[in-house]
């Protein structure tokens, strides 16, 4: 039993229902404490207000607007996404979860939770960004589509990192430092793609960026499922 299980993990209906149980538990805990969502919203709205008052409304190039949007998204997500594992470590509940739950159910449950958290953040931040920065609204749906793909890419990359840093002493700082080299690729893609959309580009113009985000998310989720048990166990 103590030999390392090197077989490829199976995604079964049972695994998904266990993952959903972990997701529901985290959602319930978050709704009662609102810790992660408050952290993310406080950070993102403050940053958005500072950027808006500093640079003024209108007249900014699409590339600069896109860079500002994704920088706000990046640092806001860094402020909250690690909480999903840090909370287990700080409450001392990670041991009981390790002993009772399958590692892949834990990973998927935490991934689903982070996806929900970042989706909520995107739904609140994106319209505020458009209003505060007076962004032209020609391609809002395409921008939202890109934001949706970004949520999946960011969560797929950061959930495993959150599990790695949860046991470290300086968790908050370490999370951004460790996640940055992994996230820099989708961030560059998002800045380029976002600029194209804000400049009036169509789906065809950003199809390469969208494909890259899908591929990146697929690779990161697969790698995380394969590696998570080694991070999660001792």
């Amino acid at each position: 039993m103590n030999e390392r299980n090197t077989a490829l993990p199976q995604i079964s209906a049972g695994l998904i229902s266990k993952a959903l149980a972990i997701y529901a538990k985290d959602l319930r805990l978050e709704l009662r404490s609102r810790y992660a969502v408050n952290t993310i919203l406080m950070f993102s709205i403050t940053t958005l207000a500072v950027v808006s008052y500093s640079l003024g409304q209108g007249g900014l190039s699409p590339r600069l607007l896109s860079a500002l949007y994704w920088i706000i998204m990046f640092f806001s997500s860094m402020a909250g996404l690690a909480q999903v594992f840090i909370r287990e470590e700080e409450a001392g509940t990670s041991l009981v979860l390790r002993l009772t739950a399958e590692p892949n159910a834990v990973y998927l449950g935490k991934l689903f939770f982070n996806l929900t958290l970042l989706l909520v953040m995107t739904v609140i931040i994106t319209p505020l960004f458009f209003i505060f920065m007076d962004v032209p609204v020609d391609n809002v749906l395409l921008f939202v589509l890109m934001a949706l793909f970004a949520v999946i890419a960011l969560c797929s990359a950061t959930t495993l990192v959150a599990a790695i840093i949860a046991r470290a002493a300086v968790k908050g700082t370490l999370f951004a430092v460790v996640a940055f080299p992994i996230i820099i690729v989708p961030m560059m893609v998002l800045v380029t793609g976002g600029a194209k959309v804000l400049d009036g580009g169509s789906v065809g113009d950003v199809s390469a960026e969208l494909q890259l985000l899908v591929a990146y998310s697929g690779v990161m989720i697969t790698a995380s499922i394969l590696l998570f048990r080694f991070v999660w166990q001792e």
């Binding site: 229902s17 319930r28 009662r32 404490s33 509940t93």
Partner: peptide, 23 residues
């Protein structure tokens, strides 16, 4: 003694959670 459950869940919610997570 070093096992901790979820303080912000009720006893029933804790029991249901550990039942679900073990299938």
């Amino acid at each position: 003694p070093y096992l901790n459950f979820y303080d912000d869940l009720t006893a029933e919610e804790n029991l249901k959670f550990f039942a679900s997570v073990t299938g």
